[in-house]
Design a binder for these strands. Structure first.
Lengths: 340, 340
DNA sequence: GTTAGCACTCTTATCTAACGAGTGCTAAAT
DNA sequence: ATTTAGCACTCGTTAGATAAGAGTGCTAAC
């Protein structure tokens, strides 16, 4: 295992590198207040740390840089709880004190605050619809052959979709159908909607009217074709400020992953309770090999609602960022909780 | 005025530069098939063209590069109608042949197609709501003190907003209010809604019930606080592929303008009928000094619905891009027309 | 076990020289 | 009066060479 001195040296190297983005030399460590050994001693320790894989050289006579293993160790064992500044906390508090009653609004604001405070890119997934239930379903005819279907959940989320109405189906049929659907489906969790719709309700409708198949198909496609969960991204341009991304090719590939959305969404969806840090190659996505992704979840009761994440270079201010995420995710949880 | 030969030389220089992004020398022009003069003659013409401000040198002994004035002249007088390739046209046709019944869907797809075909960034504004009328207004109570208001237009556009209901207001009041509003407002153009709401309707409501002020205020804020018109941006990362944007600072400032949205939205909103090209400094926005913005509008009858634009470096494939925009804007116009 | 000292390595910055693309001008050719 | 060939000159780019500086690893002394 590592001696206390080695721990100290490793800590200083990583702390320093996170701030400066420059390789750290033995002399600059020796100058630190809480270090009382000579640079030579530190060089010896550094050689050991390198052998163990916690730090690396960029070339044969350069200072040391944390390796991914080093970051991993740092995150797992060396993180001192970070005291967020008052102004940071105030900014968060202010944001949540504004009257907000919509899921989306809260989530979007959170993403914004997070990226503003960190200079990284924030990505928020959610909220998932576990707990949400159908409040009302409506179909409004726009013209002879078009209509818009609107689905409202008890959380105030509104989903809508236009579709063209086949000539065979009369407006009265539509109305009848909606009535039946509402009768049967109001209060049903959204997540069960698809299943319910395709089994019992389909049969039920059938017995009430003809030609319902087609309309039903449309309805089905209206709400369940595309993924429901949205990704809120904040501070995309922050990445450009990080010195490790001066290479345009890197930026390009990273941006296209972010804009792709689905890969990232899968990643965030996979995140489970608590806070998780993925460093460099621990991320499966190619373009993120030089990045760290920190994810935290927020929930309502026992149900995980969504994920809140920060994407930055592996050289991240882990300590501060983790504190921020903790505060924000509990804040989200609290806010949503207060609504029900 | 310019002689025919000068026109030819200018044309070749700009065409070539647009393709290669490299300064063009006299020798390479002389080698062109449709040029039958020596490089010395061309050098003389180039000196004249430079004196007139159409081309520039990057340094004292470099080849020539188009100036903004040169691009302006090129766009105004030298553009040969570009024949779009069959595959380009097919891609557009295919896109519009897919069943789409929603404004937003069409616009978003268009932005996507446009950026895919061009390697520039597409920005689409709209559609404005001139012609659209209120189809239905609804307020659905979610809980004792929250509700969601939904506004549906005859175009299938759905706007919604959650708000908290003051304790003073009973659900039955809300219902009454909605009924009155629908009675009075259905069919009213969205654009007049704000005004109507604040004058006659406010009075009317007042006579029917007490405590309506508050509810009315909420309703008001629900739909008219934020700008209605949305910006659809496609191919943001395309900018990164242009050699003129290898400087990260430039990218940063350009991206922040794009993400700001409001400045760009104003710019696009100002665009009036037909196709317009803004080259370099003709753009008022600082970060766009090295860019060209090409805007085209689409409309429904006499009403301009929105703007469709392409953002790229001043060294743009004007000819091709203009043809594409023309096709797409008329396609949009046609599509929307077919819906009414 | 710790540290001072020193040779060695590698990066970075600066300078120089050579090369080449391209121009502008002059004088000859058409 | 144009057009063109020829040539000197300019400037950017590239490659090498040199020097400075930061930092290491090792050895020997403390």
């Amino acid at each position: 295992m590592l001696t206390n001195r080695q721990l100290l040296v490793l800590q200083v190297i990583i702390d320093e590198f996170i701030q400066t983005a420059q390789p750290i030399g033995s002399r600059s460590i020796a100058k630190k207040e809480d270090v009382s050994f000579s640079s030579a001693t530190i060089r010896n320790e550094m050689a050991d740390l390198e052998e163990m894989g916690f730090i690396e050289k960029t070339h044969s006579s350069s200072g040391r840089v944390p390796s991914e293993k080093g970051y991993r160790f740092y995150v797992d064992h060396l993180l001192s709880p970070f005291r967020l500044s008052k102004s940071d906390l105030n900014i968060i508090t202010d944001t949540f004190e504004k009257e907000m009653v919509e899921f989306e609004q809260v989530v979007q604001k959170s993403a914004q605050v997070l990226s503003n405070l960190t200079n990284y890119t924030s990505i928020i997934l959610g909220p998932e619809v576990f707990e949400t239930k159908l409040k009302q379903l409506q179909i409004i005819s726009l013209s002879a052959h078009t209509a818009v279907a609107i689905l409202v959940t008890n959380t105030g989320h509104v989903e809508h979709r236009s579709f063209s109405v086949p000539a065979k189906i009369r407006p009265s049929d539509l109305e009848k159908m909606v009535n039946i659907l509402n009768e049967r489906l109001v209060g049903v969790p959204i997540i069960q909607l698809h299943e319910k719709l395709s089994t019992e309700i389909a049969l039920l409708l059938h017995s009430y009217m003809e030609d319902v198949d087609l309309a039903y198909q449309y309805l089905q496609s209206a709400f369940f074709d595309e993924q429901q969960v949205k990704l809120y991204v904040g501070g995309k341009t922050n990445i450009l400020m990080q010195p490790e991304f001066k290479d345009i090719e890197k930026i390009r590939s990273l941006y296209s992953v972010i804009e792709q959305e689905d890969e990232i969404a899968d990643l965030l969806r996979a995140a489970t309770g608590g806070l998780k840090v993925s460093i460099g190659q621990e991320n499966k996505i190619d373009a993120m090999q030089d990045c760290s992704l920190i994810t935290a979840t927020y929930s309502l009761g026992d149900n995980q609602l969504g994920t809140i994440a920060l994407l930055g270079p592996t050289r991240m201010e882990y300590s501060r960022v983790i504190s921020l995420l903790n505060v924000l995710s509990s804040r989200l949880t609290k806010t949503f909780h207060s609504w029900y």
